[in-house]
Design a protein around this nucleic acid. Structure first.
Lengths: 347, 347
DNA sequence: TTGAAAGCGCTAACAT
DNA sequence: ATGTTAGCGCTTTCAA
């Protein structure tokens, strides 16, 4: 086995170049005055020795690690994967590196994750919270540790968040279904402790209210709640189908996210129901598979990469200036083939 | 804005508890002798002060960061996402945290990533290499820096790797198609600089050779090469279809991975070709969407989470004992509905 | 069982 | 323009 060589230090560079440790430090970091030739020589010697600065040492001294913690429910979920990508991309631009920890949708893991990241003295944290409890995040805010929450809003707390305009998302999804003549809409929602779950439903009800005010038309709206993940959604919807059986009357199903929609589509196919002929399906998020699934999914899209980038920029701003930013990104309805117009002639 | 409080140090705990810095250190780290009551008191005081150990400081002293660098082509790719998950899971078990960097399939980025991670003094690196060049990895090996490569083998170099049994993967995919009566097989491969691309093709040729030795049956085998990603595969295959047009005679297409297979399926559908009635499609990897796509995809599966876990364990072993491990994980053919038996009566 | 002191590699304040 | 020195928070001899 090749023995791991010790890294050269600035002291080694100092000795080899004949300058003092301090001069070397200034030459390498670019801070402070160094004569041009001196700097050149030092850089040359450093390169010869294969010098690589030791971040652990400078972090100790400067109290800045240029590390940020990213706490995520599950990096495998395409939504979070893209968010992570956005964060990582922007972080790299700014000379930061990300520490990634999964919580597997478990609040205790989230707490532990935050603690280890704090021990590692990350300069800040970006968190997609489990949301069953939020004490850990409140603690961060309380302690003045820079952090940004993605995908949830805490209205009364002065903290950074970045999320999509979920209310509008719910609104435009429902409005579209109403405009295209749907009369019985089911919302397969996530559990209500999730911010987005509550707010998307609100948006849908808002669209319903407006609609029913305008026309004298009756529209049925049902909501059921499922835990996250394909399997859970599949099971929940399956049980719902079994229970309602012949009473099942919906002509449209909105799903909390695209994964839920895939589960719904799969089940509807298994029951021989044709999409969109008999039933429309709408998702949320527009993850990449939604355009290639059968049928291509109509869905409320957000720019997930941007969500990540904005989160990082918001964090950096908070770290550097202490300012708080609360960002809501726009959503957009992508109409594909899982929905169809059922209005008979009317616009 | 809440001002960020300075973290309490062991010195603070020492002052507050009346013991020396050293005793506190031993009490908190659990190394060395401390009287039971002393320890209890110290732990209590530490808790009161909200003490959290500073990893940057202990890393500097002990030369161990308990950080490992994970360099990945694209964390958004479902295959790598699962691998990352496996790494992170195992790392967390062992008290390590992962630094994640994407290379976006760019060798220069890979080099940069490795450099920043070395500056951060990670204890080791896990790399899914771009593979257009491998100088950076050779350098790591040369310098004796613990590292594990995922998904590629360097036969002549004493270094750790973990990969799937790609040759066997190619072999069983092809064998299955031959056994089920396919006579014209096309392999939509990735570029040949990729280890898996070369070896999977080898496995297929091996199956072909065996087959043609046994029976006197002629089988056509064509290979085309595409860059990675859905769009690239789509384009490559589209151009191939245009070029061959009416000469297109294949009754089976094996794809380098499931993403390629999705592109192929999409195109075949657009051309009105029925899968599996007219044409079988086989993928590689078995990413999670492959079971819910239409038709559900026959594919060569590996345990991606395990790939990640093994990679981490291999790394840790290398860090702790210096031993080299080269691991090849088994593959398995998952038969779904994108393929069908075309043999007329024969077994 | 506990404490004193040195030092990991770097930066920053001050001196020259 | 360069050097001296102290110290970030921790661990690790070594001594008491």
């Amino acid at each position: 086995m090749v023995k791991r060589k010790k890294f050269a230090t600035i002291k080694d560079v100092a000795d080899a170049s004949g300058f003092s440790i301090n001069t070397v430090s200034r030459a390498l970091s670019g801070r402070g005055y160094v004569k041009k030739e001196t700097k050149e020589k030092i850089l040359r010697v450093a390169a010869e020795l294969g010098y690589t600065r030791d971040c652990t040492a400078s972090a100790l001294r400067t109290r800045k690690t240029h590390l940020i913690g990213v706490v995520v429910v599950d990096n495998t979920n395409p939504f979070y994967a893209e968010v992570i990508k956005g964060i990582e991309l922007e972080a790299r631009n700014y000379g930061y590196t990300i520490l990634l920890v999964n919580t597997d949708r478990n609040y205790e893991n989230e707490e532990k994750a935050i603690n280890t990241l704090l021990q590692r003295r990350v300069d800040g944290l970006i968190i997609t919270a489990v949301q069953t409890r939020i004490d850990d995040i409140l603690r961060l805010v309380h302690q003045g540790i820079p952090n940004v929450v993605i995908g949830a809003r805490f209205e009364n707390i002065p903290t950074n968040y970045v999320c999509s305009d979920d209310e509008r998302g719910g609104y435009i999804a429902m409005k579209y279904l109403l405009d295209t003549g749907h009369k019985n809409v089911l919302f397969l929602n996530a559990q209500k402790y999730k911010y987005a779950a509550r707010v998307r439903e609100q948006g849908m009800r808002k669209a319903l209210n407006e609609y029913e005010l305008t026309l004298e038309n009756k529209v049925e709206f049902g909501v059921i709640y499922s835990n996250e993940g394909f399997e859970n959604a599949y099971e929940t919807f399956q049980m719902f189908l079994q229970k309602t059986k012949k009473d099942f009357k919906y002509d449209a199903i909105i799903c909390y996210n695209d994964i839920f929609a895939y589960a719904v589509i799969k089940l509807l196919k298994e029951h021989g129901l044709k999409i969109p002929e008999e039933l429309s399906v709408v998702g949320f998020d527009d993850i990449s598979f939604s355009s290639i699934i059968e049928p291509p999914l109509t869905t409320v899209a957000t720019d997930k990469i941007r969500l990540g980038r904005e989160a990082f920029k918001s964090l950096i701003k908070n770290i550097e200036t202490g300012s708080i930013s609360q960002i809501i990104l726009p959503v957009e309805l992508i109409i594909r083939n899982s929905t169809k117009n059922r209005s008979n002639g009317n616009p």
